[in-house]
Every structure is written in C-alpha cells, then in structure tokens.
Computed example of a mutant assay.
Amino acid sequence: MVSTGSVIDWLLDSDPAIRWQVMRDLLDAPETEWQAERARVETEGWGAKLLSHQDADGQWAGGAFLPADYSEEKWRAQGQAWTATCFSLQQLHEFGLDPTSQRARNTIDLIGRHCRWDHDGQPFWDGEVEECINARTVTAGVYFGVDVSRIVARLLGERQADGGWNCERCNGSHRSSFHTTINVLEALLAYERAEGTTSEIRAARRAGEEYLLERHLFRGLARGAVVDERYLAFLYPYRWRYDVLRGLDHFRAAGGAPDPRLAEAIAHLRSKQGPDGTWRLDWSLKGPVWFEMETVGEPSRWITLRALRILRWWNENAGR
C-alpha cells in the first residue's frame, strides 16, 4: 500500500462525520477525543445541513419512504428520491449523530408519533413488508435506541432456503439477493451488539454470511461469473445497494479472523487504490438528494475511509 500519512491528513481535512471515524478506526484516538469530534456532527457540516431540512413534525420531505409530493411521474423522470425520512435517518446514523443527544431523542419521538409507511400506513418503528426497508429500519432503530424486536422476528422468518434474503420474496422469488442480504446482515449484527443474541439470530446471520462467502462476495455460485459488474464499482451513499466494499465492511464490523474466501475481494479492493493512496467514487444513484457530498470520478473520503479500515482489519488478522 501507499503510505497512508498524507491520506490520513486528507481525510482529517474534511467533515466531522469523516474525522471522528478516522480518529476512532485508523488513529486509535482516545474515546474522549473522537466522541468530542462526533458531537460536532449535529452542529457542523453534513450532519447539520441534513438536520436543517427536517420538518417540524420530525420527518423529512413529509414522508417515510417517499416525499409527500413525489408522484409516479416524478419517479420516472428523476429517479427514486433519497430525501424522505428513512434515508435521512440512515444517513444520520452513518454520519454518527449522537443518539443520546436531545436532538436525536426528539427526532425519534416525533417520527414515532407522526411518520407512517407509504405501503399501508404502518407506524414507522413497526416497519412495513419489504425486507430491505425493514432491515434499514432495524439498523436505524437499534442505533437510536428504539425497540425493533418485532421487525427482527419478521426478518428471521423471511430467510430464503439458500441462506439469504430477497425483497422480491413477496412477488414469488425463492433466491436470495446480494442487496437484500447485506441490508439484513447489517441489521442483525447491529441488533446483536445492542440487545444480545440468540441461537436463532446467530444461525440466521451465519447463513447469510455464508451465502456471500460461498460467492466470494461477487460471483455466481453455479458458474463463478461476476454477478453484476457494479458490485465491483464503489458508490456512496449506497442506500439499499450492495457492492464488494459494503460486503467487506460488514465482515470487518463482525470482527474475528477473516474468512479466506474474502481474499479475492480484498485483492480487488487493493487494485482500485490510486497512486495517491485514495479510492475514487465510481458512481452514484440517480434521484433527488438534499445535497451532494462528493463527485463521481474523484477521490472519495467515504470510500477511502472504509477501504483503509477494511485493509487494517485484514492485515492485522489474516496474517497477510
């Protein structure tokens, strides 16, 4: 790898949402220091900017999954909107908004009282019917201290026979999806860390992880071909999408010795590092956002942060 010194400086010369994670995950700074930096997410930079778009009733754009005024015609013309409540909460979680802050507590309370899912008017923290949406609701709920155990129970009962999950199950799919599986795996891991685990949760998470590992994070099981070239291209924010970087980051977060079947994905990750030590933003999802953070084709702090912490975990635990 290229020396990371100048890259670390570049990462630190950015938003609080990036800086506190660099301090914690790459520099091993004392908790008091990175927590102080994380507290700035609420009042500075991207976090403060996103919070400034919040509605008085706690929602964003007046809706749970879609903005209140987002018609089918707008979707066809502009793509899926990423401005509604569920995506805004996901982003605040990834920024690291302090879940114990008064602003966070007020937000979660207001959403519980006012926000209803577009599907059938279900209360936000009850979830709805689609696995990807419910998984992200679990991840956000766990982070912000909400009881999402009923959604977890539902997800456990929706696992496919091949080990993973697919949000097209309700339309008759019997095969898992990389996209849905990574969303559910992140949710189950977050729930285990916060609430404790059970044999059922452990078995489900391990089965979902095995689904990805058997496929080396991006290959089909039958022929070994790349399932989707975009799995090998990195994006952020990833919303519901899967890519190899997101898969690797899950296994890093789960901890322990890396499975040897991750080696090919690690080699791909290393191959995408630029001469300056950074990784680029390869693409982004179409659709309205509150604001752009980075430019496609340019070095990405989000992707570089995630890549460096993945490689740190691999190098320290895989003996290579």
Rank of each mutant, 00 (worst) to 15 (best):
R103S: 13
W240F: 15
D282W: 06
Q91C: 12
F218T: 13
Y238D: 12
V152E: 10
G121W: 01
L308V: 05
I8W: 02
L50Q: 02
S177K: 04
E42C: 09
R136A: 05
T181I: 04
G247A: 10
G45R: 08
T180I: 04
R246V: 15
P67C: 10
G79N: 06
I111Y: 04
M23W: 01
R136W: 12
R136E: 14
Y231K: 04
E128D: 13
N315Q: 13
Y236C: 09
R159G: 01
Y211L: 08
A81H: 05
A222T: 03
E292C: 07
Q273R: 11
W20E: 02
R150D: 14
H93W: 07
V146Q: 15
H53D: 00
W46S: 10
W117I: 12
Y238T: 14
P275C: 02
E195D: 09
G164D: 01
W313S: 11
K286D: 14
R113P: 03
N315L: 14
A253I: 01
S271P: 09
R113E: 13
R312E: 04
W165G: 07
D282A: 11
P67R: 08
S6C: 00
T83V: 12
E209I: 00
L281G: 02
S199H: 07
F124K: 03
D55G: 06
E94Y: 06
H114I: 04
V296Y: 01
Y191K: 02
W34S: 00
E195M: 15
S88P: 06
D15H: 10
H216E: 14
A233V: 10
W279G: 07
G96L: 03
K74R: 14
E209P: 08
S101A: 13
N183I: 02
G208Y: 01
F251C: 00
A29R: 07
Y143L: 04
G297S: 09
D162W: 03
G164Q: 06
Q78T: 12
W46Q: 09
E192D: 14
E210G: 08
D118F: 00
A64K: 00
R230I: 07
L232F: 06
E200T: 07
T32E: 13
Q59D: 06
A307Y: 00
A307V: 04
R261E: 10
P99N: 07
A77H: 08
G255C: 09
E94P: 00
V184P: 05
A225T: 12
V138F: 05
P67D: 12
W165E: 06
S284A: 15
G47M: 11
H179V: 11
A204D: 09
R270L: 08
R312I: 03
I151Y: 00
E186H: 12
D126K: 14
V142Q: 07
S52P: 00
R105E: 13
V146H: 05
E33K: 06
H268Q: 09
G287H: 05
